[in-house]
Design a protein around this nucleic acid. Structure first.
Lengths: 187, 187
DNA sequence: GGTGTCATGTAAACAGTTACATGATTTT
DNA sequence: AAAATCATGTAACTGTTTACATGACACC
């Protein structure tokens, strides 16, 4: 899936500038791109060329002028047919698991320290995700009861990703601490 | 994290050819690269240049000759210091969540169908992961009790990723089916 | 006779990140 | 005086995938 559909989706909710799209994508946990300029401004040019969006330049005093992009009817139908297309399976990148895979050369203390750092890192993501939901400051269209429910469940999904990772590492750490068989150091 | 450390890790367990590395990486759920030639053969050349591995060409009758790569002492110490370095936070890419985010334009039946396909897709990954563990055919060094435990917990982590996604989508689907407030169609 | 395994590599394309560039205004 | 916000864009690089290329043998 390309960033193009993420942009089309946002435009289907509200006309936006590249700058606004960047910010929305940047602090969304679901839309996983970094939200860098290169991708966004290039995609917008492409959407124009494909006739999926139009833009309108608005000049401003005391601020740079901006281009407000609006989705077209073709854009809406392209978006709709994409939402109906076969879903891609979920993927993860946990480089920490590869790190752990070769961590048997570490001493018990070194390993526990490593797990501690990971626990903290994951814990802080978990906390930030909870805060975002609690404050309700996340970008979230709520046009129908169903849409509201869907967006709640999307945030719930992200939350449970971090929660289960956090529980997993805490449990692993505890087990390593409590079982003396794991404390033998390799020659 | 680059594929370089995944390769160094495997080499720290057993000397291997590029072809063998490719297969191990390809069917590992943890090492998330596609295992394509380009990356592997280039990385091996680089590891040689950095003195982290050496190779030995073995000519074979009735099969192409192969290059067996062996990790060096510097390679081992590089690997060790990497395992001690600050872990990266876990990441996910679930393009399906973005798809769902804009799915309120779909009819209840279309949405249920979409969720059904995702449920099946995730279910089959979950099943394959369980089978891999059950058959015990996954690549897994078991040199000490601790290493055995670590690799078990790594597989457990992958398993629970798919399991919680599966439970999430089943629950979402059921709720949408049971609550009539979600069955109103937008004008 | 076609497909699969063993085994190495290259070319081209696409996706994604970081950093650069400009410039006014507002906040600390 | 420095940093952040608004706003658009480009350049260079890295990472990743798909496809191409070769060739022998084994299995169905």
């Amino acid at each position: 899936m390309s960033i193009k559909f993420a942009i089309l989706g946002i435009l289907s909710f509200q006309p936006s500038t590249g700058y606004e799209l960047k910010k929305i994508i940047e602090d969304s946990s679901v839309m996983y791109w970094s939200g860098n300029n290169n991708q966004i401004y290039k995609s917008l040019v492409q959407l124009l060329a494909e006739g999926l969006a139009t833009n309108e330049v608005r000049h401003q005093e005391s601020a740079p002028s901006k281009k407000i992009y609006t989705i077209t009817a073709e854009g809406l139908s392209e978006l709709r047919s994409w939402t109906l297309s076969a879903p891609e399976p979920p993927e993860f990148k946990k480089s920490f698991l590869t790190q752990l895979a070769w961590a048997d050369r570490l001493s018990p203390d070194e390993l526990d320290g490593l797990l501690g750092i990971y626990e903290e890192e994951v814990g802080s993501r978990l906390f930030m995700q909870q805060e975002k939901t609690r404050r309700g400051d996340a970008f979230a269209p709520k046009r129908t009861p169903r849409e509201t429910y869907l967006w709640t469940m999307i945030e719930e999904n992200v939350h449970s990703f971090y929660l289960s990772e956090w529980q997993w590492v805490r449990n692993l750490r505890k087990e390593l601490q409590n079982n003396d068989a794991f404390k033998e150091v390799k020659p």
